[in-house]
Amino acid sequence: MEPMILEYTVSADDFSGAGEASGDVKKTLKSLGFPPEVIRRVSVAMYEAEINMVIHARGGKITVEISPDEIRVCCEDVGPGIPDIDLAMQEGWSTASDKVRGLGFGAGMGLPNIKKYTDYLDIKTVVGQGTTLTMSVAV
């Protein structure tokens, strides 16, 4: 069976709109009858990635591939890149601005949360060019 493909453009202009794509994926997975725990893991990981794209990378593109046995999410941005991935994966380490922290994010839990909720995570990043994050959750 061919996977179902969903594509989203994440805009960095509107912080309040961040999460729109993840919410849509959550609704779609619900309507397809995936288990609640799988839906939650996918939507939380994707939401963290979406927030990251908005606060760090001026937005980007998200592609979601839905197969019966796996949900794969690919997030591509042309932002500043991540200079040190090991540091970025540490809980509590963050480069977010005070403004972002005031909004309840940027506490250095984004990437660790994504790792926690997914079965597979790959980060390709080039400083000054952008980051592509691929993650999947097995059903």
Binding site: A18, G19, R40, S43, G104
Partner: peptide, 15 residues
């Protein structure tokens, strides 16, 4: 005590 739309979206993701 945080009041912004992302509180609602966070609630949505976490059921």
């Amino acid at each position: 005590g945080l009041v912004n739309p992302q509180v609602i979206r966070t609630a949505e993701m976490m059921d």
